[in-house]
Design a binder for these strands. Structure first.
Lengths: 254, 254
DNA sequence: ATCTATTTGTACGTATGTATT
DNA sequence: AAATACATACGTACAAATAGA
């Protein structure tokens, strides 16, 4: 784990559990412990830090809440260094944006900038299994939705297409951000304006984009993939704008 | 605060403190509490959840570690809903990437996609104070660095330029991501290859880019700002590539 | 399958620290 | 300055879970 960066401002005062948590973090880094490695048990930590049991436990909870450790009971149990999961990271970051009232436009501005880049970088780099997975996914919305609920399901499914791509990203940060945004959009409740029927033409365009995109990815045509994805994002954005979509922020828990 | 999303997989079992933390989170959302609002004191929580003091305290630590509450002692003290700070969010997200070995290339791929977008969106939207701040910042590296240490300082200062822009973003997510990346780069230790002298030409280009960028922003010329920033990012990337830069991941604490 | 040892998890009572009035 | 209200910290006792004999 990483050590604390230079503490710039003279912070007021850190509570003991936080101090202990930081100390354990630093110790883990110093020892070069890797994910899966066991850290000292409660008893030893109590002794080493000369703190009460409760204090140590609170420190462990802090590390656990940050996704850095897991704990198990029983013989051989204790705290174990844990790689922060993507799910946990998304949840923690989601808490930040909960207070920020993001708009759909904000998200699409980013998707428009990033997803074409991802598509281009994946061209020729996907296994046949993944390509097949993408095609199977598209099949879930080969026909227009009949009911409102079905439409909602299709919407989520079409977002899954992008989540699959995100997972394949060689650039961990690019993949994470796109995955995070797709999650936000999936969590949205979409209300379509009652008297505006779904735009079939745009829906069809979106589906075709995805089909052509898979072909471009298979043919290692990065430029084409990028351009299709750009069109796709613009279509999707237009579709969202036409529907009455309300951004409903909420906490994501792991 | 946001409620838990649908728990898809039957998770093994959540420890009591985690359960309590989730319950408090949900309760806060339900009550519509805002940042700054006080939540029930320890005593009341102990009563309401019928849990021991220690358990409640661990729950509070979890929420605190996630940046969702702060606690104060003394009369009128207790837990208070707190907007997750950008610093905290960056630290938590940094923990995720600590295990992911990001490369400089990964970061610049993203900066190249996002910073021009930010620049374009800021054109004509910056106050004269901010524009002056940017110009003052550029002045810190109006002359080539004489020493290695001075060069390092200039590098950090030139990154601050981008942090200032990020802070002005209307799109909270765009601003956050760029700020996060700038932080990562600032935290890097930069080792220049001993026998490769700094590339003065590129350095000069970078400085000029920033100057011209401020002008474009002042003149509300979004397209120009975007194009300058694109060039700037390409220059900066080339500069990083020429120097021997080692990505050194570490934990960021708030 | 049962017991046993180990280690975390929970509970409770008391004492201390800290800020408000 | 003193009393009050609250979190913070400590120590012990017991419960629950798990691995291994």
């Amino acid at each position: 784990m990483p050590p604390a960066t230079t503490r710039s401002k003279a912070e007021p005062k850190l509570s003991r559990p936080v101090q202990v948590a930081e100390a354990i973090k630093d110790w883990v880094v110093e020892q070069g412990l890797q994910a899966g490695d066991r850290l000292p048990g409660e008893a030893e930590l109590i002794e080493r830090f000369a703190m009460a049991k409760g204090t140590i436990r609170e420190a462990m909870r802090i590390l656990e809440a940050q996704g850095l450790i897991k704990t198990r009971t029983g013989p051989g149990g204790g705290g174990f260094v844990h790689e922060v999961s993507r799910q946990r990271a998304k949840a923690l970051l989601g808490n930040y944006f909960y207070f920020k009232d993001l708009t759909i436009g904000d998200i699409y501005q980013l998707r428009l900038a990033l997803e074409p880049e991802l598509a281009a970088s994946l061209a020729g780099n996907l296994s046949e299994e993944v390509l097949a997975l993408l095609e199977d996914n598209i099949a879930e919305y080969s026909e227009p939705a009949a009911t409102l609920d079905e439409e909602r399901q299709q919407h989520v499914a079409s977002l899954r297409f992008h989540a699959v791509l995100a997972e394949q990203a060689k650039n961990p940060m690019l993949g994470f951000i796109i995955d995070f945004m797709v999650n936000l959009l999936s969590d949205l409740t979409v209300y379509r304006r009652l008297y505006s029927p779904p735009n079939l033409e745009l829906w069809k365009q979106g589906r075709d984009h995805q089909q052509r995109l898979v072909q471009a990815l298979r043919n290692s045509d990065g430029d084409l993939a990028r351009s299709i994805m750009t069109d796709h994002m613009e279509t999707a954005w237009t579709l969202m704008r036409q529907q009455e979509v309300e951004m409903q922020s909420r906490f994501i828990s792991e």
